[in-house]
Write a protein that binds this DNA or RNA. Structure first.
Lengths: 215, 215, 215, 215
DNA sequence: TATGAATGAGAATTCATTCAT
DNA sequence: GATGAATGAATTCTCATTCAT
């Protein structure tokens, strides 16, 4: 049970803190009940706030998810940027990026919902803000990738963009991959399993990086 | 307004035709009103059938979409298989595959909804049937790709799978790309535009195919 | 799987036989799936007939239940009439009647649905026919009871009518009595159990018969 | 048209009042249109509330009926308990109980639906609560009956339980008793009339009470 | 600021019965 | 007589968001 800092959030500081508390409560809720478990009711209860209060800090449920995704993306990109010793070998980098994506909490499921669920239902203003922020982070990713692999910016941009598409696709397929194999026909068991993120993403990344590694 | 062939579909043939009519009506509706416009009510009206009759041919709305997707996939793969003269040059093949995806009616938007919307909400039995069919088609795609590019099966499988992920990602991003630029801030105009299918997919495919083309 | 006598039922005899087959299929279905499992679709399948054919022998689903009940009632009353050696002692007779009611297949659950479900939804003509038949059977029951207990007709009628009311009530309560005790709070376990037919009916009958036994 | 007290029910008091208003609107509706006329739509309209608001006060339509029945039962039992001067003579008490049952608004039709319609379709938690409350009221009825008739508790329990079964049966039969005799065949006219509550219940009660009155 | 009561749109599905063949 | 395709009525309940207090 998240306890919030104080009953009234007056200063800008307190507002930011309160919003962070709400995001944390949302993360809790997603972890515990999945995305469908996140109702504004449940969120309010979890955050120890009234339903109406939520809307003082977040304009809609989708904006909430969007904020969550932006944070996850920052988390992922930030960690990537701090890795200066990474092997530029395609296989190694593929391993690293696969792990990074999977180990960034909520990154994959949020990314999978980014376009169809989140962007589609969010108001313009927060969407624009988020998009700018996301594009900047993506750019930082591309820059760091360029540095690691000694690529010229254009080439790195192309690779980064390709990776982003694969990542989105793999995140998407992963959505239904983790089905309880219990009771599945044998061929279906495998049919679901091959959709797992790792099995899609890692080899694809290796292939893509391999295409430019020797440059 | 689709008028159906006869009042009662008694023969197996007529039943197949009637289901096809229903799918056609659904395609109409999607084109005209978008996916949200497809309600069972509207569909019944459009197909000139009673609501209950729909359920004799389709067990749920999601199964309907699934059937539609399987058809679109068959359409795409079938056309690909029939292209024996294709240039194996990455850039050319990238062009071709981009066009093919875009010119297969409803393929992209259905693919974008395949996992999160369709698979998630369809009953097991039709899902399994569809999955088997989809996997077979995917395999045919990989085989033909192998032939075109003179790749060994494993390599072709990897490439095909990678392309499938990119395609899914690009289809996803394309969902919100086509926003009326009117009234958008300049940077947002571009931010939406770069999500367009072609701009994501084509270069990625070229890059990926380039990685294996010289083999 | 009930196989019906012949594809076409021409003579009156064959018609009667065909209807009996349908009733038998219905009994099967109820036993197997409960009353909610009896859909006209399932019934047709079980009886190896087309849905439409059902309606040549039974005017509605409720009429079917009504016919079933009349048969069960005949079964019960007939068996009662054939018992000439019954002890007229209230406790013994209570035991006997309790067993009789429970051992007449489908009697209790059909009786419980007789008024609210069946009579309410059946057309007048079959209803009237059934009512006449039911009243006659009830009368036979009263007459036999009078004989057994050496009661004058009026008194026997009163007792019989009272028993019928108790029987209806007990059949009603029995509807929800047999709930899986697993997971029930202790007090609820008992709260459901006391609604069991035997626990309601037997003592009530003994009390009622005791009121007139010494006459 | 029920107008409710205030726009927003903030205090606990107001909430209780609002629920009472909803129940009252339901009673109105039943009286006017019968039980089938009670749709959540109609109820919302009648109560001058939005549909969703109903669900803040009542978890389902069946819970609504259950609440209504519990109130009616309280009404009946409460009035019974306050009668200290009642004649303990079986005929008098039978008259009284018959009148009491009939004069408690909605008691009979709700009781007739209690098991098959209401209990069957209500969620566990409200069902358990209601059952506890109903059992307690039944117990109070038995206790008061014991006092009136100078019965020992066990005997009174048996009588009370028997009466409850008869009452349930008679309520059941009463469901179809009040048919417009116009156009009915003569024998059917009587066949329906004998199902009237009074004709079933009163003599049965007298018989039952007679069995223990002289103790 | 905070609260939480009130709002209301929105759509899928079943199944008894009919009737064209 | 038999078939089974077609019909279509009918109603619940959820939950994001708002706004009176």
């Amino acid at each position: 049970m998240t306890i919030h800092s104080s009953k009234r959030a007056r200063s800008e500081d307190q507002k930011v803190k309160r919003q962070a508390e709400i995001l944390a409560a949302a993360r809790d809720l997603i972890e515990e009940l999945g995305f469908d478990g996140v109702t504004m009711n449940a969120l309010a209860r979890r955050a120890n706030l009234a339903k109406g209060t939520l809307y003082l800090y977040v304009r809609s449920k989708e904006e909430l998810f969007l904020l969550l995704f932006v944070e996850a993306l920052e988390d992922l990109v930030g960690r990537f940027e701090n890795e200066h010793e990474l092997s530029a070998h395609p296989a190694d980098l593929a391993d690293y990026l696969t792990d990074l994506s999977q180990n960034t909490p909520l990154f994959l499921p949020l990314f999978a919902r980014l376009v169809a669920v989140i962007e589609t239902n969010v108001a313009d203003e927060p969407l624009f803000t988020a998009k700018r922020s996301m594009l900047a982070k993506f750019e930082r990713f591309a820059v760091h990738l360029a540095k690691l692999m000694h690529l010229d910016p254009d080439r790195a941009g192309l690779v980064a963009r390709t990776l982003m598409n694969v990542l989105q696709g793999a995140a998407q397929f992963d959505l239904t991959a983790n089905r309880d194999p219990e009771g599945l026909p044998d061929d279906m068991r495998e049919a679901f399993a091959i959709n797992e993120f790792t099995r899609n993403f890692r080899p694809a990344v290796e292939l893509i990086l391999g295409a430019v590694a020797s440059d």
